[in-house]
Design a protein around this nucleic acid. Sequence first.
DNA 1: TTTTGAGTTGTTCGA
DNA 2: GTCGAACAACTCAAA
Length: 463
Amino acid sequence: MRAVPARPNVRGMAGSTLLWFRRDLRLGDNPALAAAASSTSEPMLGLFVIDPALWGPAGPVRRAYLLSSLRALDDQLGGRLVVRQGDPTTVIPRVAAEAGASQVFISSDFGPYGSARDSAVKAALTMDDVALVAEGSPYAVDPGTITKSDGTAYRVFTPFCRAWCEHGWGRPVEAASPMWLEAASDPWPTASAPDGLALPSAGEQAAINRWQRFIEGPLADYAEDRNRADLAGTSSLSAALRWGEIHPRTMLEALGDARGHEVFRKELCWREFYADVLHHSPRSARASLRDDMAGMRIDDGDQADEQFAAWTAGRTGYPFVDAGMRQLRAEGWMHNRVRMVVASFLIKDLHLPWQRGAAHFMEWLRDGDLASNQHGWQWTAGTGTDAAPYFRVFNPVTQGLRFDPSGDYVRKYVPELRALAGADAHEPWNAPLLAADYPDRIVDHAAERHESLARLAELHPRA
DNA sequence: TTTTGAGTTGTTCGA
DNA sequence: GTCGAACAACTCAAA
């Protein structure tokens, strides 16, 4: 990235190569970059397109994170990352023409929007005699690759994971250090995180540093500590994976057979499993994967709206739920264990549709990934893969006592409960004078659990 | 072909 | 206080 050539005139420069970054904001272990670099000895042009179709829905948190990550990438490119705004179907052919590029390299996108967009871009480029070359993807194994023996997609995680491990994945590809062309950028959009929301540092180097710290520290006890909300037992790399600041292949390469390593590899596999499920069933981003659950009775109306608002604000009166919802607003991130608990509360205690909670998560999560988010929610709702224990209803108090036994997590995000010591923070109703500013419980968990099971029984009436 | 056992993340009840 | 059973029914792989 230091080797910046004497500035050529981009216009009319024949034979140059374009690298279109999307969710692969890194230089290391980047097959598209490696392929582009080895295809030409000419300097190449690194481009990111701000696509209005994605930019708006990304929400303020992901917009701010993305800009921060793009700034880091721009630094790595010696300030030569070209940023354009607009529909890629028109922007990509235009930039390719400006640069005289005959090839545009990308990393494959398997999402419903991304794959359709890439088809449209490919068609538009073909008219100009420019090739769109896809190399690599955000996954260790491309979605659609792992199938059952009859060729159809897996719907259960464990057999998928077994097949995924047997299939294996390649070694990280060597870093390339091409020369980068300079070209005009559109003005970068502005985006700032909501007031008071603190984002961690973004970019490839930050991701590598975080990964290194995780390997040296929490990974050894990951099997036990990953569920503990009051410990820093997770990798905190979900956003880096979402934006491709680090590739899962790089991580898998470093993992061995220790228990914590095995469990972490499984977590990476979950990400790949859900990408595979979404790839085979694009509709499942919006609709329940299991159509037999579509008739589930849900609540709506003014009271449902009020309860939804209490949930988003972290004012349900259940400390573990409220701590999670407030962490989301404070950091644009939530501990995975707590994601399940707040999701279960929305679905089983408030009887609201999973799509409503999933949309709120997508609005606030800096790691918001369509496949992982929607199917994580569907797992909790019992509408997705893993249909077996449909009677699973999380008890928000029990979960808090088990996975935040110190109460530190609750007190960190719910200041009204700081007068309660230890695990007492999970049951403020036992000491009302010490938690006077904290809301009362908006529903009775035992009663709503019963209601949820009753509504499920309506779908499967006994003979 | 049919059968069988197992399946990320759970809770409650009653002995 | 601890422990096993029950909560019903779908997917997958192996026997």
